[in-house]
């Protein structure tokens, strides 16, 4: 399989204010993701997981090393990525549908077409909302939706422009356990259907094992990948497997690596 995201020997240094020390967020960071793969990155807090996301999307440039996306060196925002965060960050003055359509107003070639072909785009937004279980929520404002529903809408916004790369930064961390498991299944089904490449940053090991082909463990700052564990359970996985022994063993093994990483 071809490598889609290739982060090789990357370091990123945040320049602090004058007088304070610079922070080395990641160093000797190596990560390869094949096209269509779903990888999870776990690690102790403050290990540079979010930095990894910003590197992959070209929001930050490495101080050393190279980031390649689809064979090309990343030297600016990549525009083939969709992102979702722990905070759904919906615009409160727009209806949920218009929030979902926001990327279309920015990305070429849609930004030129959306004005003239509003009905088609509206329909597309309603379809993707329906696919995550938000039938008829398009006209509601995001603040009228529950946290779980907002996060679903946020996933729709990340995927509306059919990105080749989806980046998820702890998207389910603020949700209750039941909603979280529901959304695991939503993202599992979306990935199955659209076959995008996905990098999920999380601190929930069950989430990582349930969703990913490969789980990468990052060390404490400056972050680098210390263990990469392939999850041999065939996908798509039913939620029941999370109660099986194999699943529990994998989670437990990863937990051991995290404990080491925290030092």
């Amino acid at each position: 399989m071809e490598t889609f995201v290739d982060i090789s020997d990357v370091a990123l240094r945040y320049t602090g204010r004058a007088g304070s020390q610079d922070t080395l967020a990641v160093e000797h960071l190596n990560l390869k993701v094949h096209r269509g793969d779903f990888v999870a990155v776990v690690g102790p807090s403050g290990c540079g997981k979010s930095t990894l996301m910003k590197l992959a999307t070209g929001l930050h440039f490495p101080s050393a090393g190279v980031v390649r996306l689809d064979g090309k060196v990343v030297n600016g925002p990549v525009s083939i990525a969709g992102m979702a965060f722990q905070n759904p960050v919906m615009l409160p003055w727009r209806s949920t549908r218009d929030n979902v359509l926001l990327p279309m107003e920015v990305v070429d070639p849609h930004r030129r077409q959306i004005r003239t072909n509003r009905t088609k785009y509206k329909q597309q937004a309603d379809e993707i909302l329906a696919s995550v279980g938000l039938v008829g929520a398009g006209d509601q404002y995001p603040w009228q939706l529950s946290g779980g529903m907002q996060q679903r809408a946020s996933l729709c916004r990340a995927l509306i422009h059919d990105p080749e790369l989806l980046l998820l930064d702890e998207p389910f961390a603020a949700l209750d356990a039941f909603t979280r498991e529901e959304l695991w299944c939503v993202i599992r089904d979306l990935h199955q259907e659209k076959q995008f490449t996905c990098i999920l940053v999380t601190h929930d090991l069950r989430e990582a094992v349930f969703l990913a082909d490969t789980v990468h463990v990052m060390s404490a700052r400056p972050g680098q990948i210390i263990v990469s564990r392939t999850i041999p359970i065939p996908r798509p996985r039913p939620i029941e497997i999370t109660y099986e022994t194999e699943f529990a063993e994998l989670t437990h093994e990863l937990r051991g690596h995290i404990a080491e990483a925290r030092g």
């Binding site: 929001l59 525009s79 992102m83 965060f85 960050v89 926001l102 990327p103 920015v106 990340a158 980046l167």
Partner: peptide, 10 residues
């Protein structure tokens, strides 16, 4: 985050 979402789209 909102800025990131949009900037990542170019």
């Amino acid at each position: 985050e909102m800025e990131d979402v949009l900037r990542a789209l170019g």
